[in-house]
Write a protein that binds this DNA or RNA. Structure first.
Lengths: 215, 215
DNA sequence: TAGATTGTTAATCGATTAACAATC
DNA sequence: TAGATTGTTAATCGATTAACAATC
């Protein structure tokens, strides 16, 4: 654990993208790639790629470049995609269901192990082969199975209350789709936010404030 | 248009979050806030808030702070949330439907004006009060109504093909949920990516590489 | 007026890019 | 060996933080 402590979040956030591009190359049967070639495909500098990768070790070979299958596997290992961390999903509304059915959890390091909803109507339904449980059962479940992460697809107010409880039941990480900023009140908890509304508003700004032809 | 040309994307990306926090204060009946108070609520520095806001003008008052309703309205105007930009959604699968039904487009600067799907079975269905159209009708629709943005909730291969076409039909911005990196091949097009898989993999890394108690 | 807090300039910090010696 | 390309150090660039004079 914590093998790579000094690595900045900016670098880490680029790793999944490297992994994706290498996967494409792998599928295309490309066995060898230089930082220069990869940089032009990905729209960044060769320097940055070499710097990024060297945070984790020397995966290349001078005069040759990088071995695609090996590098792809290395990055997967660095990310921990083989770990099968246990995730629970909280909130089986439109978004929650879409996340449950749409996401390839298994190839991203996770197993979706339970789904909860606060509505008695929804509890009992089957989503992605899992029977939705009522949120009342969440404490028992967490204490018994110690999920690694909770995926919050619930409104802000519910998120605020439930995050508190989930933390007290030992959940240390959140994939947060709600508008509640967990990280502020819960130091030491890992939070990955997906603020769709913020993303859309940013897009709105950019459309309104971009001169035609500007990058 | 392009009123604020020099402002960096890092600053712009914080605007929606300011807007959200100010909305909460507004609802709580708070009329006045200093950069210092706001900074402690949001988990950033007072300096940064003042710097950020001053990119767009002097909205505060020395010795007093910021007027909450006024600042909230200003940021909304800067973002262009009152513009009602026309959005079309491409792909009415799990994710597309969730986005269509879940997102509050109206309060984020957009109007969802049409939904398309490539499956003849799906075309004709009603989603959020809109009849899903077949993708064959997209060209005619774009040429007639000039949508400002296309929301891509389709697989990578389809995204690659359709992005190409949409650009040729005059679409200048994308809210992209696919794994295809539009921006690389289409310079001058505005792309806001939501790479859920990347976010999940980043979370995987952070869980695997965070020492207990570390921030 | 005195106190508070902004707007803004200057200092620091971190991230990206460039350069090049090491080496396959 | 010669050419290519990495790993790594140094230079640059941009973003964040600190400081303080302006001013309400």
């Amino acid at each position: 654990m914590a093998k790579y402590e000094g690595v900045s979040l900016s670098v880490v956030r680029r790793l999944p993208r490297y992994h994706r591009f290498l996967e494409d190359l792998l599928k295309a049967g490309v066995h060898r790639i230089s930082s220069r070639e990869l940089s032009s495909k990905m729209g960044l500098t060769a320097s940055q790629i070499r710097q990024d990768l060297n945070c984790f070790g020397g995966f290349g070979q001078q005069g040759y470049g990088y071995n695609v299958p090996a590098l792809h596997a290395e990055i997967g290992k660095i990310l921990g995609l083989d770990q099968g961390l246990r995730a629970i999903l909280v909130g089986a509304g439109n978004l929650g269901r879409a996340i449950a059915t749409h996401m390839a959890f298994e190839t991203k390091g996770f197993t979706l192990s339970a789904i909860f909803d606060s509505s008695p109507q929804v509890a009992g339904e089957s989503v992605r082969g899992l029977t939705v449980l009522h949120t009342d059962e969440m404490e028992r479940y967490c204490r018994a199975y110690h999920p690694d992460v909770a995926i919050l697809c619930i409104p802000k107010e519910a998120a605020q209350q439930l995050a508190e409880k989930l933390v007290s039941w030992g959940v240390k990480a959140f994939w947060n789709f709600s508008h509640y900023d967990i990280a502020i009140e819960h130091q030491g908890i890992i939070v990955e936010n997906v603020h769709l509304g913020d993303s859309l508003m940013t897009l709105c700004y950019r459309i309104n404030n971009t001169v035609d032809g500007e990058k």
